[in-house]
Amino acid sequence: MSKILRVTLPIAFIVVFYAGEPAGTLFGCRAFNVIPPLMWLLLLVTLGAANAASAFGLVRTERTRDLAFWGLTLKVCFLPIFLVSLVVFALIGSQFSLRPEALPLEFALLTPYAVLSYALMIVTSCYGFAAIIRARDEQVISPETAKNYKRWHAIPIADLVASIRLYLLLRRPDRAAGDNAQDANQFSRAYSAAQPVSRIGNSVADRPPTAHRAARIPWPAVAPLTASFCFVATAYAGGPLTMVFYPPYPTLRIDVWPLAILVCAAASVVYTHISRDRRKPRELAFWGLVIKLSLLPFFLITCLLTFFLGAYLFAPGGPAPQAFILPFALLGAYAIMIVTSSHGFAAIIRARDEQVISPETAKKYKRWHAIPIADLVASIRLYLLLRRLDSSALASAQDA
């Protein structure tokens, strides 16, 4: 199967789902309703089946880690829908009593909704199931572990945790095999394990290693950056900005925005953490600085809103009711600031592990990245420091 098609199918499934009537109703934006309901349902079923067929068709050819990656990506992208579905399910159930005469109507209303939500969850687990089967066949995990992960992928809420743990589990042996690829004995074993690929004319021995690496999309960099910039876009699509200024672009509803930014924040932190060992410290520091600068107007507006709410603390007769919003605003702004420091924390840890900076310097930069205002200065100084050290190392190598 073409690499482009393999990548396009899950992305198209996500885009089509969020371009239909349910997502438009959920986010209160007519711009999402670009596909008629009947066509949307048909496209959703078709793409769901195509993704399932693609996942199980790639069991013998695709890398185990890539299958687990797409399973985790689908889970994270659909997490807002599943969380809102749980809330809606609970609200609908709370409207009915437990009286026997009300149970048939309640069952008739909730069953189709629950079945459709569970079917969507199973489709998002297909890549995870395929990764488990491939890992079991390659004896990377035991049959008992494979059964446990399959069971977890079929249980709501537990499926997301299982996807994260599966990717982290499969990433470790894959990285260890890559580190030992230059050893002759290890290469011989890896070549023997890759023989099934040669049956479709895609043998590793027929191509130089550089061409094989160049054909891959750098997911360790693409995934965390995509999640981080989705986080930035979500921050500007609601919250303090829309409270102070009326934006000319579509925004998220006030009850949906906290959930959406929480999901994007979790995705940004998780993907940055699991990809830091395969990215350079200077690259991590650069993107950390870019994200800090991207959200600088957001934090400036948050400061203005904080001063505005703080004035209600000194209202005549005691603090006004608006002042009780201040602690939540401060806590939310600080949490968002910590998320923007995730690339900086990853760069510091990576540089410390590579002995580019000392443990004392790493502690100092970590402390600065956790303090408002100082975090931006620390991001600038960290990037300049790592760039200077890289330039010095390159100059030394050229002189040698």
Rank of each mutant, 00 (worst) to 15 (best):
S341F: 03
L300W: 10
S294Q: 03
V88Q: 07
G178M: 13
L384F: 11
S117E: 14
W368R: 00
T145R: 02
Q182V: 14
C303P: 07
A194Y: 05
P22V: 05
A221L: 08
L110H: 00
L284C: 04
Y334H: 13
D255K: 02
W368V: 00
L305K: 09
V377T: 02
H273N: 12
V339I: 10
F78A: 04
L168C: 15
T124P: 01
F107L: 11
K147A: 12
I133H: 03
R367E: 10
K366C: 11
T272P: 12
G178W: 12
T61N: 06
A227P: 04
L382W: 00
G20Y: 00
P327R: 07
I371Y: 12
Y312M: 03
Q186T: 14
S294H: 08
I132A: 04
G201P: 12
N51G: 08
R175D: 11
P281K: 00
I81E: 06
A362L: 08
P224M: 10
D375G: 11
G24T: 07
F231N: 03
W152I: 05
I35Y: 00
R367H: 14
L9K: 01
F13C: 00
L110A: 03
T361G: 08
P208I: 11
R30N: 10
Q355W: 05
A135F: 04
V269G: 07
L86Y: 15
D399G: 04
R387K: 15
A266W: 03
L382S: 03
R189S: 14
Y167F: 15
E106R: 11
T73L: 03
H369E: 06
A223D: 02
S392F: 14
A102M: 12
G93R: 15
L105C: 07
L284P: 03
A266D: 04
H153R: 08
G28E: 08
L74C: 06
D353S: 06
A50R: 05
A193I: 09
L252K: 01
F78Y: 08
Y18T: 06
I14Q: 02
L42I: 07
E283R: 02
H369M: 08
